[in-house]
Amino acid sequence: KLATQLLVDLAEGCHTHHFNSLLDIIEKVMARSLSPPPELEERDVAAYSASLEDVKTAVLGLLVILQTKLYTLPASHATRVYEMLVSHIQLHYKHSYTLPIASSIRLQAFDFLLLLRADSLHRLGLPNKDGVVRFSPYCVCDYMEPERGSEKKTSGPLSPPTGPPGPAPAGPAVRLGSVPYSLLFRVLLQCLKQESDWKVLKLVLGRLPESLRYKVLIFTSPCSVDQLCSALCSMLSGPKTLERLRGAPEGFSRTDLHLAVVPVLTALISYHNYLDKTKQREMVYCLEQGLIHRCASQCVVALSICSVEMPDIIIKALPVLVVKLTHISATASMAVPLLEFLSTLARLPHLYRNFAAEQYASVFAISLPYTNPSKFNQYIVCLAHHVIAMWFIRCRLPFRKDFVPFITKGLRSNVLLSFDDTPEKDSFRARSTSLNERPKSLRIARPPKQGLNNSPPVKEFKESSAAEAFRCRSISVSEHVVRSRIQTSLTSASLGSADENSVAQADDSLKN
């Protein structure tokens, strides 16, 4: 292990032709098999893994070397290190390495390699500790012929580059190093199909959405987006994914797998022009299946994007999809995704031109529960009313008269009656009930004795009459309010007539 670390330190600071010789020695160290011998017992696995620490030291050392060589000349050094790393990870899946030390190597290698970024000039870069990406002036992410390196360097940008540029090249004859992302992409596909350690798979799935944002990485080298989509959909639809995973937390289920895969599918929607129609349908189907899991909100957001990006695919699945959405409970976490999906859909009339009455009724059935102001915040309630109004205007004229009683009944049950079921009123009724029952229970537990009763009969009569009056008032709060309003209006009217009579009498006395 110490000798391997010494080789790594020497290679990191070497800029001459001896660098390749040092890498040859490190490569021989990495070539050791990580498969346990067949006769190895389970209690000896930890000791055997400790004997392979030099392999881990070599791989982690290459990660440090690549981070240094990416910004220094010659660029061919970075290319050689990158290829060695990718080849080593491929061996893991070729020979099915399952030892804990092998999983640790893959975890740290993917953690580093999935941080690679590219700008519009195809320059590769890595983020620093502050998250700012520094791009290399010597390494690009696409394949290029050595003699055409300078031509590639002087080509115009596709868009303004992001991030601070690296140091300027030493001279005009500098050759750019090619670090094609397709090599890593193929290893990522192998990981999605064969990885057995949940920690490694979770890391890859968590980092892929951010990497897919940099389309330069994908399009400048032959990366098959179709295969990526197929691998992701197979993970969700195939039963073998959960069987092969180990190291998963207790209670791990298909729902947890959906939570990890759906963000990658959402990021892949922007590549729909490069996906086969069959793959697009598979993607939409997987998102529909996710509606029954805890990732339902993410799936609804993804389907909203699909309705804009892939209208030809979503239009066929939309009638059944809208009916499925009615089975989702009206909760605060689902309110905004569902209502925004319906609001977006209302502005795309070509998608729902074939809707029948059942689909329009489903839209109103989804939106009406969110009009309850005692359960949802003001934004959700306003958005629900907006969706109902928009869809009522957009639905066909023959359907409107049939939906009017349905909508008014839903609004009455969710908006008007919600004020009668407020917690304050319920607590008031509970308190009044307890007050009504309390005197009775006290009389049963403690019967009054005439000799020891010091309270006069008049006081008892007053208290009983007050309790009886309170019971009468607490029967119905709404009736009490109505009666008080009527009494107030009658009182004001009587006072007004009394004032008029007094004024008339005063005038008569003055005349006399």
Score class of each variant (00 low, 15 high):
125 G>V: 02
246 R>E: 11
55 V>K: 00
98 T>G: 07
220 T>W: 02
165 P>E: 13
98 T>Q: 09
230 S>E: 12
194 Q>W: 12
64 V>R: 15
125 G>Y: 03
225 V>E: 01
217 L>D: 02
138 Y>H: 07
102 A>G: 03
181 Y>I: 04
157 P>C: 11
233 C>V: 06
242 L>G: 04
78 A>Y: 02
75 A>P: 11
116 L>I: 11
149 G>W: 05
241 T>Q: 07
222 P>N: 09
176 L>T: 09
58 A>Q: 00
245 L>I: 11
164 P>R: 12
64 V>G: 15
104 S>L: 11
192 L>W: 00
233 C>Q: 04
175 R>P: 11
221 S>C: 02
81 V>T: 06
251 G>E: 08
102 A>E: 00
225 V>T: 05
182 S>H: 10
70 L>A: 04
222 P>W: 02
128 N>Q: 09
224 S>E: 06
61 G>I: 00
70 L>H: 01
126 L>N: 03
125 G>L: 02
124 L>M: 10
134 R>I: 07
77 H>T: 02
150 S>Q: 12
160 P>T: 12
90 Q>V: 08
56 K>M: 10
55 V>L: 02
93 Y>A: 00
130 D>E: 09
77 H>G: 03
72 T>E: 09
181 Y>C: 03
242 L>I: 10
204 V>E: 00
207 R>I: 03
210 E>G: 06
125 G>D: 01
54 D>T: 01
127 P>F: 03
135 F>H: 04
162 T>R: 12
134 R>T: 07
242 L>S: 05
106 R>W: 00
50 A>V: 07
50 A>L: 06
203 L>A: 12
227 Q>T: 11
127 P>K: 09
103 S>Y: 03
230 S>I: 06
52 L>V: 10
193 K>H: 15
227 Q>M: 11
80 R>M: 05
228 L>A: 01
87 S>G: 13
238 G>A: 10
216 V>L: 05
77 H>C: 05
162 T>C: 13
185 F>H: 03
249 P>G: 11
82 Y>W: 06
207 R>C: 04
230 S>Q: 09
203 L>G: 08
175 R>M: 13
180 P>M: 03
209 P>F: 04
65 I>T: 04
175 R>K: 12
245 L>K: 02
216 V>C: 08
121 L>F: 10
206 G>V: 06
240 K>L: 06
72 T>F: 06
143 Y>E: 10
103 S>K: 10
196 S>M: 09
179 V>A: 07
221 S>M: 02
231 A>G: 04
60 L>T: 14
91 L>F: 08
70 L>K: 02
188 L>H: 00
86 V>S: 03
159 S>I: 13
71 Y>E: 03
226 D>H: 04
91 L>I: 13
156 G>K: 13
233 C>K: 02
166 G>C: 11
167 P>L: 14
63 L>M: 14
86 V>A: 05
208 L>S: 00
241 T>K: 04
187 V>A: 10
179 V>Y: 02
218 I>A: 04
163 G>Y: 13
193 K>W: 13
93 Y>I: 00
147 E>P: 14
125 G>K: 02
200 V>P: 00
205 L>T: 01
191 C>H: 01
162 T>Y: 11
105 I>S: 00
60 L>P: 01
87 S>A: 09
121 L>H: 10
82 Y>S: 01
216 V>E: 05
165 P>A: 14
218 I>M: 09
54 D>W: 01
67 Q>I: 01
243 E>W: 05
205 L>E: 00
82 Y>M: 05
64 V>I: 07
106 R>F: 00
86 V>G: 03
224 S>R: 08
140 V>Q: 04
173 A>G: 10
68 T>I: 08
183 L>E: 12
101 I>K: 01
102 A>L: 03
231 A>F: 03
212 L>N: 00
55 V>Q: 01
164 P>W: 13
248 A>G: 06
243 E>I: 07
188 L>P: 00
172 P>S: 08
218 I>G: 02
75 A>T: 10
161 P>N: 11
79 T>L: 09
125 G>E: 02
78 A>E: 01
181 Y>E: 02
166 G>W: 10
102 A>Q: 01
219 F>K: 10
136 S>A: 04
139 C>H: 10
173 A>Q: 14
229 C>S: 07
89 I>C: 03
54 D>E: 04
85 L>T: 04
116 L>H: 02
94 K>Q: 09
219 F>W: 04
149 G>V: 12
97 Y>H: 02
77 H>P: 01
223 C>E: 04
66 L>M: 10
75 A>I: 12
75 A>M: 06
164 P>D: 14
63 L>Y: 03
115 L>P: 04
60 L>V: 12
232 L>V: 08
129 K>S: 13
129 K>I: 10
59 V>M: 04
205 L>M: 04
62 L>Y: 01
156 G>A: 11
64 V>A: 15
61 G>N: 01
144 M>I: 13
97 Y>V: 02
176 L>S: 09
188 L>K: 00
226 D>C: 03
